[in-house]
């Protein structure tokens, strides 16, 4: 069992949990993820690691409540425990000195971006961060990421903070102003697609972190397969980070809708209880 040692409500449907999982905490690197199961009847879901503390033996996850499992997870409190918490899984981020890097985070994708921003800064990169959300209330980890950024921008759909519009608009301005060596983008699939299309024009290396549906997370089921440059890769063992210019985003969007019907049924039943 893996006890919850801290909980924060970051916005109406975005929650932070700090979980005691010493083995995972000891090995976790930026870009990696975990698989958790709440209880004996639960499903296994992957979540990218938002932070980890090997001394404390804790791992932080931040999640958007979208389905039955994440909603149930959001209802847990400090002192409750998770049945299973396995990791760290996947390949870590390619953290090294690139020069000038732009880190683009959208929505709940800002959470897994945070450890990468920290690590890239530590390597001596000039880090420019661009965070996007629907409105200012939904912006995650703003002060935390700002603290490790040399330049920092915000874009909101409603203009309640920073630029009114998309992160890609801000990215365009940054590219016009700087010689950018690498772009790291984590967020909704559509955001990663738009960012990748933009950077491709300038031939800027772009990494994205994908979050397909998974079951085991160890390369066994192939449910998380993604098409990279026409070749099938497993996000759980080959990823979750891939060259943004080579990802078939449309196929990923389609595969992530595989069980929407069942998800609806599951949520409805849970709500009825």
């Amino acid at each position: 069992m893996y006890p919850i040692v801290d909980k924060k409500i970051l916005s109406e449907n975005v929650k932070l949990l700090k979980i005691k999982a010493p083995l995972v905490a000891k090995k976790a690197l930026p870009g990696q993820f975990i698989i958790l199961r709440i209880d004996e009847k639960g499903e296994r879901i992957p979540l990218t690691i938002a932070d980890s503390d090997p001394k404390e033996g804790t791992v932080t996850i931040i999640f958007l409540e979208v389905g039955k499992t994440t909603k149930q997870l959001g209802l847990l409190h400090v002192g409750d425990s998770l049945e299973n918490f396995a990791g760290p899984l996947g390949m870590p981020s390619e953290v090294k000195k690139y020069g000038t890097v732009v880190c683009v985070g959208g929505g709940v994708g800002i959470a897994p971006l945070y450890p990468i921003v920290k690590a890239l800064k530590k390597e001596g990169n000039f880090v420019i961060s661009i965070l996007g959300a629907k409105s200012k209330d939904l912006l995650l980890l703003e002060p935390e990421i700002r603290a490790f950024s040399d330049e920092f921008y915000i874009a909101t759909d409603d203009g309640s903070k920073g630029h009114k519009g998309f992160v890609s608009d801000v990215l365009q301005q940054v590219i016009d102003k700087h010689k950018v060596e690498m772009v790291m983008a984590i967020g909704p699939i559509i955001m990663m697609k738009v960012v990748s299309n933009l950077t491709k024009k300038y031939n800027i290396k772009t990494l994205v972190s994908l979050n397909p549906i998974m079951v085991d997370g160890t390369g066994m089921c192939g449910g998380c397969r993604v098409s990279i440059d026409g070749k099938t890769k497993f996000a759980c063992v080959d990823g979750p980070e891939f060259d943004g210019h080579k990802v078939d985003y449309d196929n990923l969007m389609l595969r992530n809708r595989r069980f929407v019907h069942a998800e609806g049924e599951s949520c409805k039943l849970a709500g009825d209880q």
Partner: peptide
């Protein structure tokens, strides 16, 4: 994937079990 969902995750008992 199919057998893991059904056998280990007990999808044949969905929605009592969460995995579809």
């Amino acid at each position: 994937e199919f057998l893991t969902r059904v056998n280990m995750m007990k999808a044949y008992r969905f929605p009592e079990y969460d995995t579809p």
